[in-house]
Design a protein around this nucleic acid. Structure first.
Lengths: 145, 145
DNA sequence: TATTGTTATACTCTATAACTATA
DNA sequence: TATAGTTATAGAGTATAACAATA
């Protein structure tokens, strides 16, 4: 007897790609309203977790090239959102730290973004939401491994 | 009395971005082994769901520019993975359809990719896995809305 | 005149390589 | 000589605009 075709699911990347694209599209106007770039936001997030001793280390932490974040760091510094001072012990390196103003703007942007993301999360039950976010945090942290 | 700092979670995009980057990095060698491009794989996935009447419609369905997929369609057609023939009723449009060979290669690639993604999914409990995949499918489908 | 598919051009983003200043 | 940061150059990817064929 003929078997029904087995239900194939899409792979993770195939599902995540369009989802992320829409999430990012929703972020852009929010970032623009706060006058901050996507990379700027990523950097503030990284520095909010912990200060970092070199720009190269920061670039690696966020999966970017060291040459790619220089412009971003210039902007953030000029806006007063980060501190960037030469290490007295090795004047080649720049110690990077988020400022209170930087943390404030980062939190404001984050709140707005998360508010917008309710559009997606609202479709989930309380349990789905809980599991989904927990899994996502776990999988994202596993990256660094 | 001092309140403990409220635990802020990252926004969805901030979590999904590095995750997707690693998933895509894991896909690339698999796609290369099957001699197919990322966009080619995306197109085969879309055409496997249902044939499409115009290239513009296909481009929109996968969130790409209509000019961007032409080279991809050329390659897929030459490889015998899709059919692309003028509509007799309107000879401006090209009817697009996946071939058995195209479906075969798409399924082979998909199997390999999903096998590789077990590296991530294996960290989840059976229930987490079930909920996570279900939610993902739901959120991804909601895109088109 | 409007639309489908195509080609050509310009622009953005990213990576590679060269440079400086410290060590 | 090796490394951190920077700047300059080149390449890939993408979008915009112009074009040919058909309606």
């Amino acid at each position: 007897m003929a078997m029904p075709p087995k239900p194939r699911r899409d792979d993770l990347a195939a599902m995540l790609h369009p989802l992320l694209r829409d999430l990012v599209a929703a972020e852009l106007p929010i970032l623009a309203a706060h006058d901050i770039s996507m990379w700027g936001y990523v950097v503030l997030n990284a520095l909010d977790r912990s200060p970092v001793r070199t720009q190269t280390a920061l670039a690696e932490a966020i999966g970017a090239d060291k040459t790619r974040i220089i412009g971003t760091l210039d902007e953030l510094q000029q806006a007063g959102y980060i501190e960037r001072r030469p290490d007295p012990d090795d004047r080649r390196v720049r110690l990077l730290e988020i400022t209170p103003a930087g943390r404030a703007v980062k939190n404001a942007v984050q709140s707005d973004i998360q508010h917008g993301e309710e559009r997606w999360l609202a479709e989930l039950t309380a349990e789905e939401r809980r599991v989904f976010l927990r899994v996502l945090e776990r999988l994202t942290r596993a990256e660094t491994t």
